[in-house]
Amino acid sequence: MAETVQTLPAERRTEVLRQSWSVGIATGLYGISFGALSVAAGLDLWQTQALSLLMFTGGSQFAFVGIIGTGGLAAAPAAIATATMLSIRNGLYALQTRKFLDARGAKRLAAAQLTIDESTAVGLAQPEQPAQKLGFWHTGIAVFLFWNLMTFIGALAGNAMGDPKVYGLDGAAVAAFTALVWPRLASTTARLTAALAVALALVSSPLVPAGIPVLIAALAAVALGLRSAAHHEPPLEGEDGELPGSDPVP
Protein backbone atom coordinates (compact mmCIF):
# COMPACT_ATOMS: atom_id res chain seq x y z
CA MET A 1 0.00 0.00 0.00
CA ALA A 2 2.98 2.29 -0.55
CA GLU A 3 1.11 4.40 -3.11
CA THR A 4 -1.65 4.98 -0.53
CA VAL A 5 0.82 6.61 1.83
CA GLN A 6 2.05 8.92 -0.90
CA THR A 7 -1.30 10.12 -2.16
CA LEU A 8 -3.07 10.61 1.17
CA PRO A 9 -2.13 13.63 3.35
CA ALA A 10 -0.77 12.62 6.77
CA GLU A 11 -3.67 14.16 8.69
CA ARG A 12 -6.28 12.36 6.59
CA ARG A 13 -4.38 9.12 7.04
CA THR A 14 -4.42 9.54 10.84
CA GLU A 15 -8.10 10.39 10.72
CA VAL A 16 -8.99 7.27 8.73
CA LEU A 17 -6.82 5.02 10.90
CA ARG A 18 -8.37 6.38 14.09
CA GLN A 19 -11.86 5.78 12.71
CA SER A 20 -10.99 2.29 11.50
CA TRP A 21 -9.46 1.09 14.74
CA SER A 22 -12.14 2.56 17.00
CA VAL A 23 -14.80 0.80 14.96
CA GLY A 24 -12.68 -2.37 15.02
CA ILE A 25 -12.17 -2.38 18.79
CA ALA A 26 -15.78 -1.46 19.60
CA THR A 27 -17.15 -4.17 17.30
CA GLY A 28 -14.59 -6.77 18.29
CA LEU A 29 -15.67 -6.54 21.94
CA TYR A 30 -18.99 -8.18 21.03
CA GLY A 31 -17.02 -11.31 20.22
CA ILE A 32 -17.11 -12.10 23.93
CA SER A 33 -20.86 -12.67 23.80
CA PHE A 34 -20.50 -14.84 20.70
CA GLY A 35 -17.82 -16.99 22.34
CA ALA A 36 -19.89 -17.53 25.48
CA LEU A 37 -23.10 -18.31 23.55
CA SER A 38 -21.32 -20.69 21.21
CA VAL A 39 -19.95 -22.95 23.96
CA ALA A 40 -23.32 -22.75 25.72
CA ALA A 41 -24.89 -24.04 22.50
CA GLY A 42 -22.65 -27.12 22.63
CA LEU A 43 -19.75 -26.18 20.36
CA ASP A 44 -16.26 -26.70 21.73
CA LEU A 45 -13.58 -24.04 22.00
CA TRP A 46 -12.01 -24.89 18.64
CA GLN A 47 -15.26 -25.05 16.70
CA THR A 48 -16.17 -21.69 18.22
CA GLN A 49 -12.82 -20.19 17.26
CA ALA A 50 -13.05 -21.69 13.77
CA LEU A 51 -16.32 -19.82 13.22
CA SER A 52 -14.75 -16.48 14.13
CA LEU A 53 -11.61 -17.13 12.08
CA LEU A 54 -13.13 -18.74 9.00
CA MET A 55 -16.77 -17.67 8.86
CA PHE A 56 -16.09 -14.19 10.26
CA THR A 57 -19.53 -12.70 9.80
CA GLY A 58 -21.28 -12.10 13.10
CA GLY A 59 -24.95 -12.49 12.19
CA SER A 60 -24.26 -15.84 10.53
CA GLN A 61 -22.15 -17.00 13.47
CA PHE A 62 -24.85 -16.16 16.04
CA ALA A 63 -27.49 -17.82 13.86
CA PHE A 64 -25.41 -20.98 13.35
CA VAL A 65 -24.80 -21.57 17.06
CA GLY A 66 -28.36 -20.54 17.93
CA ILE A 67 -29.86 -23.21 15.68
CA ILE A 68 -27.35 -25.87 16.80
CA GLY A 69 -28.19 -24.95 20.39
CA THR A 70 -31.87 -25.57 19.74
CA GLY A 71 -31.79 -28.60 17.45
CA GLY A 72 -28.37 -30.16 17.98
CA LEU A 73 -26.54 -31.93 15.16
CA ALA A 74 -29.83 -32.86 13.47
CA ALA A 75 -30.38 -29.16 12.81
CA ALA A 76 -26.94 -28.73 11.18
CA PRO A 77 -28.26 -28.49 7.59
CA ALA A 78 -30.68 -25.72 8.61
CA ALA A 79 -27.92 -23.99 10.60
CA ILE A 80 -25.61 -24.08 7.56
CA ALA A 81 -28.32 -22.80 5.20
CA THR A 82 -29.34 -19.96 7.53
CA ALA A 83 -25.74 -18.84 8.14
CA THR A 84 -25.08 -18.85 4.39
CA MET A 85 -28.19 -16.83 3.56
CA LEU A 86 -27.33 -14.26 6.24
CA SER A 87 -23.93 -13.85 4.60
CA ILE A 88 -25.28 -13.09 1.13
CA ARG A 89 -25.25 -9.37 1.94
CA ASN A 90 -21.45 -9.55 2.23
CA GLY A 91 -21.32 -10.54 -1.42
CA LEU A 92 -23.42 -7.48 -2.24
CA TYR A 93 -21.01 -5.30 -0.26
CA ALA A 94 -18.19 -6.77 -2.34
CA LEU A 95 -19.80 -5.36 -5.48
CA GLN A 96 -19.18 -1.90 -3.97
CA THR A 97 -15.82 -2.44 -2.26
CA ARG A 98 -14.18 -4.06 -5.31
CA LYS A 99 -14.54 -0.76 -7.13
CA PHE A 100 -12.03 0.99 -4.86
CA LEU A 101 -9.96 -2.01 -3.67
CA ASP A 102 -8.66 -3.22 -7.00
CA ALA A 103 -7.28 -6.35 -5.27
CA ARG A 104 -5.88 -9.33 -7.14
CA GLY A 105 -4.79 -12.87 -6.26
CA ALA A 106 -4.18 -13.62 -2.58
CA LYS A 107 -4.99 -10.04 -1.70
CA ARG A 108 -8.43 -10.49 -3.22
CA LEU A 109 -9.03 -13.60 -1.10
CA ALA A 110 -8.07 -11.62 2.02
CA ALA A 111 -10.31 -8.74 0.96
CA ALA A 112 -13.21 -11.16 0.49
CA GLN A 113 -12.80 -12.61 3.98
CA LEU A 114 -12.70 -9.09 5.47
CA THR A 115 -15.78 -7.93 3.53
CA ILE A 116 -18.27 -7.35 6.35
CA ASP A 117 -20.60 -4.57 7.47
CA GLU A 118 -17.97 -2.47 9.26
CA SER A 119 -15.13 -2.59 6.72
CA THR A 120 -17.59 -1.79 3.92
CA ALA A 121 -19.20 1.05 5.88
CA VAL A 122 -15.90 2.72 6.85
CA GLY A 123 -14.51 2.27 3.35
CA LEU A 124 -17.54 3.70 1.59
CA ALA A 125 -17.73 6.59 4.08
CA GLN A 126 -14.45 8.05 2.76
CA PRO A 127 -14.63 10.53 -0.10
CA GLU A 128 -11.29 9.71 -1.78
CA GLN A 129 -10.17 6.34 -3.17
CA PRO A 130 -6.90 5.92 -1.22
CA ALA A 131 -8.77 6.61 2.04
CA GLN A 132 -11.52 4.15 1.06
CA LYS A 133 -8.90 1.47 0.58
CA LEU A 134 -7.10 2.33 3.82
CA GLY A 135 -10.35 2.43 5.80
CA PHE A 136 -11.54 -0.91 4.43
CA TRP A 137 -8.31 -2.78 5.17
CA HIS A 138 -7.66 -1.31 8.61
CA THR A 139 -11.24 -1.71 9.79
CA GLY A 140 -11.39 -5.27 8.48
CA ILE A 141 -8.10 -6.23 10.12
CA ALA A 142 -8.99 -4.48 13.42
CA VAL A 143 -12.39 -6.19 13.66
CA PHE A 144 -10.81 -9.53 12.72
CA LEU A 145 -8.16 -9.31 15.45
CA PHE A 146 -10.43 -8.14 18.27
CA TRP A 147 -13.42 -10.29 17.27
CA ASN A 148 -11.23 -13.40 17.38
CA LEU A 149 -9.47 -12.45 20.61
CA MET A 150 -12.77 -11.71 22.33
CA THR A 151 -14.35 -14.91 20.96
CA PHE A 152 -11.55 -16.87 22.62
CA ILE A 153 -12.04 -15.08 25.95
CA GLY A 154 -15.80 -15.48 25.74
CA ALA A 155 -15.50 -19.20 25.00
CA LEU A 156 -13.16 -19.73 27.95
CA ALA A 157 -15.52 -17.79 30.22
CA GLY A 158 -18.51 -19.73 28.90
CA ASN A 159 -16.76 -23.06 29.55
CA ALA A 160 -15.99 -22.00 33.13
CA MET A 161 -19.57 -20.96 33.85
CA GLY A 162 -21.36 -24.32 33.96
CA ASP A 163 -25.13 -24.54 33.31
CA PRO A 164 -25.83 -21.70 30.85
CA LYS A 165 -29.51 -21.44 31.77
CA VAL A 166 -28.70 -20.33 35.34
CA TYR A 167 -26.99 -17.27 33.89
CA GLY A 168 -29.79 -16.68 31.40
CA LEU A 169 -27.59 -17.30 28.37
CA ASP A 170 -30.65 -18.39 26.36
CA GLY A 171 -32.01 -14.92 27.16
CA ALA A 172 -28.71 -13.43 25.97
CA ALA A 173 -29.17 -15.16 22.61
CA VAL A 174 -32.67 -13.74 22.24
CA ALA A 175 -31.35 -10.28 23.14
CA ALA A 176 -28.46 -10.58 20.67
CA PHE A 177 -30.77 -11.47 17.76
CA THR A 178 -33.08 -8.63 18.73
CA ALA A 179 -30.15 -6.21 18.68
CA LEU A 180 -29.08 -7.53 15.28
CA VAL A 181 -32.48 -7.05 13.67
CA TRP A 182 -33.30 -3.72 15.33
CA PRO A 183 -31.31 -1.36 13.03
CA ARG A 184 -32.87 -3.09 10.01
CA LEU A 185 -36.44 -2.24 10.97
CA ALA A 186 -36.38 1.38 9.77
CA SER A 187 -38.83 0.92 6.89
CA THR A 188 -42.46 -0.22 7.01
CA THR A 189 -41.67 -3.01 4.56
CA ALA A 190 -38.95 -4.29 6.88
CA ARG A 191 -41.34 -4.26 9.85
CA LEU A 192 -44.00 -6.13 7.88
CA THR A 193 -41.37 -8.65 6.80
CA ALA A 194 -40.33 -9.20 10.42
CA ALA A 195 -43.96 -9.63 11.54
CA LEU A 196 -44.69 -12.15 8.78
CA ALA A 197 -41.43 -14.00 9.52
CA VAL A 198 -42.33 -14.30 13.23
CA ALA A 199 -45.79 -15.64 12.33
CA LEU A 200 -44.37 -18.18 9.85
CA ALA A 201 -41.75 -19.38 12.35
CA LEU A 202 -44.23 -19.76 15.21
CA VAL A 203 -46.87 -21.55 13.14
CA SER A 204 -44.36 -23.96 11.60
CA SER A 205 -42.31 -24.58 14.78
CA PRO A 206 -44.44 -27.45 16.20
CA LEU A 207 -44.78 -29.06 12.75
CA VAL A 208 -41.24 -29.28 11.33
CA PRO A 209 -37.76 -30.22 12.70
CA ALA A 210 -35.66 -27.62 14.58
CA GLY A 211 -34.00 -25.04 12.36
CA ILE A 212 -36.50 -25.40 9.50
CA PRO A 213 -38.91 -22.73 10.90
CA VAL A 214 -36.18 -20.12 10.33
CA LEU A 215 -35.88 -21.16 6.69
CA ILE A 216 -39.65 -20.96 6.29
CA ALA A 217 -39.51 -17.49 7.86
CA ALA A 218 -37.12 -16.48 5.05
CA LEU A 219 -40.06 -16.70 2.65
CA ALA A 220 -41.35 -13.49 4.24
CA ALA A 221 -38.45 -11.65 2.55
CA VAL A 222 -39.44 -13.06 -0.85
CA ALA A 223 -43.12 -12.20 -0.36
CA LEU A 224 -42.55 -8.63 0.84
CA GLY A 225 -39.65 -8.06 -1.55
CA LEU A 226 -41.82 -8.87 -4.55
CA ARG A 227 -44.73 -6.88 -3.13
CA SER A 228 -42.68 -3.73 -2.47
CA ALA A 229 -41.04 -3.96 -5.88
CA ALA A 230 -44.53 -3.95 -7.40
CA HIS A 231 -45.46 -0.85 -5.38
CA HIS A 232 -42.28 1.06 -6.34
CA GLU A 233 -41.44 2.10 -2.81
CA PRO A 234 -38.31 4.19 -2.31
CA PRO A 235 -35.10 2.16 -1.73
CA LEU A 236 -34.72 0.50 1.65
CA GLU A 237 -32.26 2.41 3.77
CA GLY A 238 -31.22 2.33 7.39
CA GLU A 239 -31.23 5.27 9.78
CA ASP A 240 -28.49 7.89 9.73
CA GLY A 241 -27.38 7.02 6.21
CA GLU A 242 -26.12 3.62 7.35
CA LEU A 243 -25.83 0.80 4.89
CA PRO A 244 -29.10 -1.06 4.61
CA GLY A 245 -28.87 -3.85 7.12
CA SER A 246 -25.59 -2.85 8.71
CA ASP A 247 -24.95 -4.89 11.84
CA PRO A 248 -23.65 -3.97 15.26
CA VAL A 249 -21.38 -7.03 14.82
CA PRO A 250 -19.25 -8.05 11.81
Binding site: V198, P206, A218, A220, A221
Partner: peptide, 27 residues
Protein backbone atom coordinates in the same frame (compact mmCIF):
# COMPACT_ATOMS: atom_id res chain seq x y z
CA UNK B 1 -35.03 -5.84 -2.29
CA UNK B 2 -35.28 -9.50 -1.43
CA UNK B 3 -31.64 -9.71 -0.37
CA UNK B 4 -32.07 -6.59 1.80
CA UNK B 5 -35.12 -8.09 3.50
CA UNK B 6 -33.62 -11.58 3.87
CA UNK B 7 -31.63 -10.84 7.07
CA UNK B 8 -34.72 -9.20 8.60
CA UNK B 9 -36.83 -12.31 7.95
CA UNK B 10 -34.16 -14.77 9.11
CA UNK B 11 -33.37 -12.85 12.30
CA UNK B 12 -37.04 -12.29 13.13
CA UNK B 13 -37.69 -16.01 12.62
CA UNK B 14 -34.75 -16.82 14.89
CA UNK B 15 -36.04 -14.49 17.60
CA UNK B 16 -39.44 -16.18 17.44
CA UNK B 17 -38.14 -19.74 17.82
CA UNK B 18 -35.43 -18.82 20.33
CA UNK B 19 -37.99 -17.05 22.52
CA UNK B 20 -41.02 -19.33 22.26
CA UNK B 21 -39.69 -22.67 20.99
CA UNK B 22 -39.71 -25.61 23.43
CA UNK B 23 -37.54 -28.75 23.29
CA UNK B 24 -39.81 -30.44 20.75
CA UNK B 25 -40.64 -27.28 18.82
CA UNK B 26 -43.86 -26.72 20.77
CA UNK B 27 -44.56 -23.13 21.82
Amino acid sequence: RITTLLPVALLAGLIAVQTFGGDEGEL
